[in-house]
Computed example of a mutant assay.
Amino acid sequence: MRQHLSLEERSYLSERYGLRLQDDPRPCLRSITAMELLDRAACESYLDWLGDYIGSPTRQATASTLVKRYAAIAVSPALYSMTVNNKGLTLELEHCLLETPELPEHNPLGTKLPYLSVSSYGISLPAPDQRRNWREHTVRELFAGHLTPLIRSLSEIARVSKMILWENALVRMVPLFKEAIDSAEDPTAAARIREDFRYIAREAPGELFGERRNPLSALVESTGMDPEGDYKHRLRRTCCLYYKVSAEYCRQCPLPQESRE
């Protein structure tokens, strides 16, 4: 039997993350599938266009901004579905379309960054007493099969550190788990969500990310999220180059104050 997301679950992912789970492309200024970002020529063209559109001066800053955005609109909803709804949301690169719609006249200050439309997706449920195995498979699909190829491509083409890009993804994941823990209906659910975060950020082997080591484990302390789900504001370990795109520095910027003048 094919599994589905409920209408309520779909609505939440749409309202919270802007994720469109439907094969209905909207009119937009530019669109590109996530798979196309693995092709050098297509990726270079898109980064140059996006950089010009959002006012980014370099491919490095554009790629960093794009990964931060992608983690918010693709990785976060997939992890939310897994940890809160116990449903694995399979997003394949060729079915993920980054769309940049025109800013509506009534909201000219809206984001210029792309949204995500997914034309086809899969849903999996853990078998009884098999949640750990199911979680491992779900994490492997999301990271080794999806996010890691994108990070590798953007890192190489834009010449930006993979560590910056992985931390960009992590800082989008932390609020998701923090909010999910705080809003959990009972202690059992909260404990499960804490365990999911600990597993992904600390314990999952590198192979689930398609890497030799877990790329998040060296960065998780800087997020302020500890294994028990407590959160304290801390600085990033890497600079996300936000200041190159915006007129300000992000709240977690690790650059010394004197270097920001």
Rank of each mutant, 00 (worst) to 15 (best):
Y46N: 06
I123Y: 06
A42H: 04
E105W: 06
R251I: 11
L147D: 08
S246G: 03
L150F: 00
S153K: 01
P256S: 10
I54N: 02
Y17F: 15
P254G: 09
L93E: 10
I32A: 04
P205S: 14
M163G: 04
N85Y: 13
K244D: 08
L255M: 15
G210T: 10
E179M: 10
F197C: 07
Y80Q: 10
H95Y: 10
C239A: 06
R152I: 05
Q257V: 11
A191D: 15
W166T: 09
G229V: 06
C43H: 11
A144E: 04
E36T: 05
R40K: 14
Y17H: 10
G206C: 03
E44T: 12
V174L: 02
T188G: 07
L125C: 06
P104I: 07
A41L: 10
M1N: 15
W49D: 06
E136A: 15
G122Y: 00
D52M: 12
E258Y: 14
S259V: 09
M225H: 05
K244E: 15
G122L: 05
I151P: 01
I151S: 04
N133C: 07
I123N: 08
T138Q: 09
R16S: 11
K87W: 01
Q60F: 01
A74V: 05
S153W: 00
L50K: 05
S14V: 09
K87S: 02
E195R: 13
A247P: 00
S31V: 06
Q130A: 14
P77C: 13
M173E: 07
L109K: 09
L150E: 00
P227R: 12
F177H: 14
Y17P: 04
Y46P: 08
E44N: 08
A78S: 13
R194L: 09
A158Q: 04
A184L: 03
D226W: 06
D129A: 11
R132C: 11
G51S: 01
I123G: 05
S64P: 12
T58K: 11
T58G: 09
S56M: 09
Y17R: 08
T90Y: 01
Q252P: 01
L241Q: 07
T65V: 09
S119G: 04
N85C: 07
L66H: 01
S259G: 13
L255Q: 01
S246T: 11
S64K: 00
S14L: 15
Y46T: 05
G55M: 13
G51I: 00
P128F: 03
A191S: 12
L216N: 14
R140K: 07
Y115A: 11
R194C: 14
S45C: 11
L109I: 09
I200C: 05
T111E: 15
S76Q: 09
P175S: 07
V245N: 06
V174T: 15
G224P: 02
A201W: 00
